[in-house]
């Protein structure tokens, strides 16, 4: 569709620009100002140049948190995308089952993020949780399951929670993609006597490419920013084993009130996210063009 060329359209965009700029630009400028100063108290600050950046870039705990973050986001994609596709394939195509499945799937997405953490505390505690008690009563594990004591178990619990929470989103998107495939394709496949596997590989998967790209990018971005759920569940522990970037940042900036280092950290984090956002946007646009053309 050819669009009208008219710069007056800016008047329609202006309100959005103002409201988002108010929430985005002023805080960003503030962060930049903080990042080059040592702030002792209200109105008392000393210019320190790039010292905080240097300190943060050499910070071992930040490196660890960043590595942990990449590992976590990578695992999230590896598990959630295939699982989500499987679920979408198994979902009913018509009848009352459709809206029932949609409602059940959407349920975890509508729970406040810290309540997700609470649910999983209650569910996995070794003394009162169904999962914790259940797995320990099997006596399969050498070390009894307790996500507050063993880093590995903490990781498993956070992963389980994340997969439980967000796989439905992938499934919903994949389902939307499947629904958009015209029935004629399936009929053609049936006439050719294609196996279900071939139907999946040559028809369904290519047709889902667009929504799956969106799913991959959304899950990558959002898992990169994860905060509330692991914060409530493990508080970043035991030790620092589940301290992801956001958790560490909030620890520095809000809890220890180290404004300077926190701001420098924020900016480094923001630049990394900005790079990903750019790649995200480019890929999305390409997918969009591929579908239209």
């Amino acid at each position: 569709m050819d669009k009208w060329q008219d710069n007056k359209a800016w008047f329609l965009v202006l309100p959005v620009f103002v409201i988002v700029a108010f929430s985005a630009l002023i805080p960003l400028m503030t962060v930049v100002n903080y990042s080059v100063q040592d702030i002792f108290g209200p109105g008392e600050a000393v210019f320190v140049g790039t010292e905080w950046f240097k300190e943060m870039l050499a910070n071992k705990r930040l490196h660890d948190a960043l590595l942990r973050q990449f590992l976590f986001s990578g695992l999230v994609l590896l598990i959630e995308i295939p699982l989500g596709i499987l679920i979408a394939l198994a979902m009913p195509k018509k009848g009352w089952g459709v809206s029932t499945s949609l409602v059940i799937l959407a349920l975890p997405l509508l729970i406040p993020w810290n309540v997700i953490g609470t649910i999983w505390i209650i569910f996995t505690r070794p003394d009162i949780g169904l999962f914790g008690v259940g797995i320990n009563s099997l006596h399969l594990l050498e070390v009894p399951f307790d996500h507050t004591a063993t880093p590995l178990y903490a990781w498993i619990t956070v992963m389980l929670m994340e997969v439980w929470h967000w796989t439905p989103l992938v499934a919903l998107l994949a389902y939307a993609g499947l629904r958009a495939i015209p029935e004629a394709y399936y009929q053609a496949a049936r006439i050719d006597g294609a196996s279900p596997w071939a139907t999946f590989w040559y028809i369904q998967l290519p047709k889902m490419r667009g929504v799956l790209t969106i799913a991959v990018l959304l899950r990558w971005m959002d898992s990169f920013l994860i905060y509330a759920e692991p914060f409530v569940l493990t508080g970043g522990g035991p030790g620092n084993s589940t301290t992801f970037l956001s958790i560490y940042l909030v620890k520095i900036a809000l809890l220890q009130f180290d404004l300077g280092p926190g701001a420098a950290f924020s900016l480094i984090y923001f630049l990394i996210v900005l790079l990903f956002s750019f790649i995200f946007y480019q890929v999305l646009q390409r997918v969009g063009k591929g579908e239209k053309g």
Partner: peptide, 12 residues
């Protein structure tokens, strides 16, 4: 802005 980490903006 949709993708900016909330933690970055919390303090300012």
């Amino acid at each position: 802005n949709r993708m900016a980490p909330a933690a970055v903006f919390a303090l300012p």
